[in-house]
Design a protein around this nucleic acid. Structure first.
Lengths: 331, 331
DNA sequence: CTGAAAGCGCTTACAG
DNA sequence: CTGAAAGCGCTTACAG
C-alpha cells in the first residue's frame, strides 16, 4: 500500500508535511494542503494506524467487552457506540466474556496488547482471588477502564443505570393502573424499587418477588410457571428482556392473553417487545453510548497532559415506554 | 508499559530472543524460554501489537461490518466469530453500516487504516457508481474481503446461506403437516423455495407470497395484517426473525393463538422464538463463524507466500428446528 | 510555512 | 541456540 513517502514524492513535499496535512492541515499553505490531498487520493493512501499509534502512543481504538450477549440492549449499545466513535475517527474492538472472569482477563490482555486507549466492560463478580494484583495492573496499564452498569471496582469511571428508580417507576405505574397482585420476576437490586413503590402508597406487596437463583433456564421457567399459576398475579414485571421472553412464552402456553388476562411489563426494550406491543422500562441507549464515547474521547485527548484517570460516575435513569400490555383495572 | 527490552534486561538476554520466546519458543533452550516468561510475568509485559504489526505487515486483526444490527442472528454470529478468533490470538473490529454504501466504505477505510488482515461484510446493493474503482481498490489493498450471505462482488470469497433450500425445507414441512393455505411473508430469493415445495407435490400455492416492498415497517405491518385477515392462511412462514416478530404481534392482537388458530414458522432463531416455542429455520451459526474464521486464518498464515486472494465460496444449509408452533392438520 | 533527524517497539534476515 | 543491525511507517521536537 502507498505510504506517506509515496504521497510526499508525488506532491513534491516531505513526508513530514504529508503527516501534518492528515492531521488537519494547520499552519500550512492551502495550496500545499490541496496538493497533498490530491496526491493521496490518486494513490489511495490510507495512513498506517499501526505506525501512527506506535509513534504517538495512542491507537484511536477503544474496546468493549460484553458479558450478556443475548440481550438485544447490548447490540444496540454497541452499534450506537461504534457510530459515535467512528465519527471521531476511532475504531472499536469487541470481545465477549460470557460472565467468566478468566475470559474477561483474556479480553483485556488482547485489547491491551493492541494498545486500546480505553476499554469498557462489565465488572464480573466474584472477581478472581488475585484481585489486588489485577487492579494494580489495570491502573498501571495506562488504559482507561470504564465500568458498565456496575461500579464494583474502585478508582475506575463508570456509567450506571438507576435500577432501583426503574423498578420503582415500573411498579408505580402498575399500581396506578390498579394492580396489587404484581409478580416481580427476577432479583438483584431492582427489587428494592419494587417494594419501595408499595411503601409510597402505604401498601405492602401481597406477592413477594420471585428470585431466579438457578442458572438453569429450564428450572427458572418452571419456577415462573408455578408462581404464575399459584400466586395468581394480575400483572407480571420481568427483570430483563430475556426473562420477559421466557415469561411471555409461559403465558402464551397457558393461554393467558396479554393484557386481557394478565398485564405485562419488562425491563429493556427490544424489537420483539415492540412488535408484541409490550410496555417496557427502556434505557436511554444513545445517551449511554454518548457518555461512554465522551469518556473515551476526553481520555485520548487529555493524553498529552499526564493521563489522569478521572473516575467519573454517571447514572442514567430508565424510563417507561407505554404500549398495550397493561390493563387499567383501577376502577 | 514494559517493552521487550525491559524483559530482555531482566532475563539477561537480547530482545531478539524475547521476541522469539513470544512466538512460541522454537529452537530455544527451555531454560532461556522459562526465564523470559518469568521476567515477562513480573513486568506484566504485553507485546505491543502495533509495533509487531508494523514490522511484520500483519496485524492479527480482522474486521466485521454489520448491516442489519436488529437481527439477533448477527449478534450471535459476531460472538461466535470473536470466540474463535480470540483462541488464535486474533482481535475483532466491529462496525455498522445500516445498509448504506457510503457508511460501508467508511468502515472499510477505518479498518483498512488499522491494517485489518481480513474484513467480512455484507455487500450492499446498489453499489456506488464508482463500483469499478472501488473493486480495484479493494483488490489492491492487500486485505482479504469476505462477502457474507451474498456474493454480489466478483473475485472475493463468500460464505452463503442456501436461502432457497431453507425456504423449500420449511414449506415442505408445512405441507407435510397438511397445510395448503400458507402465507409466505417477505420476498427475495427465498420465495423460490416456497413455490418449489408445492411443485414437488404437484400442487400450486393457493396464496401467493406477500412481498414487503415498503421500507416503512408500519405499512408492512398493515399489509401483513390485511393479508392474514383476507387470505385466511392456516399457516404463516416469515422471511426473518424481524418479520416474524411483527407477524406474531399481529396474531396476538388478532387473538389468534399459535398453533391452535394458526401455525407459525420463521427464518432465523432467536431467544424470543425459543421462548415462544416457535419452530424456526435456523442457521448453523457456529459453522458459519468457523468458516469465516478459517478464511481469516489461512489468509493471514499464507501471507508469507504472495497473498493469493483465493475467492472460495462456501454455502451453508439452514435446517428446521421443530418446536410447537405448527399444528398437524393432515388427517 | 516546511524539512531532516530521531525514535516508537517490534520482527526479520543474517551471522556465528 | 542466541545476538547485532536494519527497518516497518509514522509523529514529534527542533531548526530554519
Amino acid at each position: 500500500m502507498a505510504t506517506s513517502k509515496d504521497v510526499a514524492k508525488l506532491a513534491g513535499v516531505s513526508h513530514t508535511t504529508v503527516s501534518r496535512a492528515f492531521k488537519g492541515g494547520e499552519r500550512m499553505r492551502k495550496e500545499t494542503y490541496d496538493r497533498i490531498l490530491q496526491a493521496a487520493g490518486e494513490l489511495h493512501y490510507s495512513p498506517n494506524l499501526l505506525a501512527a499509534g506506535l509513534r504517538s502512543q495512542k491507537s484511536s481504538t477503544a474496546g468493549i467487552v460484553i458479558s450478556h450477549s443475548g440481550v438485544a440492549f447490548f447490540m444496540n449499545l454497541v452499534q450506537e457506540l461504534e457510530n459515535q466513535l467512528q465519527r471521531q475517527g476511532f475504531r472499536l474492538l469487541i470481545s465477549f466474556d460470557s460472565g467468566d472472569p478468566e475470559k474477561q482477563q483474556n479480553a483485556f490482555q488482547a485489547m491491551s496488547s493492541a494498545r486500546a486507549d480505553s476499554i469498557a466492560f462489565m465488572p464480573i463478580a466474584p472477581p478472581p482471588k488475585k484481585k489486588t494484583e489485577m487492579l494494580e495492573q489495570m491502573k498501571a496499564s495506562g488504559i482507561q477502564y470504564i465500568q458498565l452498569f456496575n461500579d464494583a471496582l474502585d478508582g475506575f469511571g463508570s456509567v450506571l443505570i438507576d435500577d432501583v428508580g426503574g423498578a420503582l417507576a415500573g411498579t408505580r405505574h402498575l399500581l396506578d393502573k390498579g394492580h396489587r397482585r404484581i409478580l416481580m420476576i427476577g432479583g438483584y437490586n431492582r427489587i428494592e424499587g419494587f417494594y419501595k413503590a408499595y411503601e409510597e402508597k402505604k401498601l405492602s406487596a401481597p406477592i413477594p418477588h420471585l428470585p431466579l437463583l438457578d442458572d438453569d433456564l429450564k428450572i427458572c421457567r418452571n419456577n415462573i410457571r408455578q408462581a404464575i399459576i399459584e400466586r395468581k398475579p394480575t400483572a407480571v414485571f420481568c427483570i430483563s428482556d430475556q426473562i420477559g421472553a421466557i415469561t411471555y412464552g409461559i403465558l402464551s402456553e397457558l393461554k393467558y392473553h396479554v393484557p386481557d388476562d394478565i398485564s405485562f411489563l419488562a425491563f429493556d426494550d427490544s424489537f420483539w417487545s415492540e412488535s408484541l406491543s409490550i410496555s417496557v422500562i427502556g434505557q436511554p441507549i444513545a445517551e449511554i453510548a454518548g457518555n461512554i464515547a465522551g469518556k473515551i474521547f476526553s481520555y485520548s485527548r487529555g493524553a498529552d497532559a499526564p493521563r489522569s484517570p478521572a473516575s467519573s460516575r454517571t447514572v442514567f435513569t430508565p424510563f417507561l415506554i407505554e404500549r398495550n400490555s397493561i390493563r387499567d383495572i383501577s376502577q
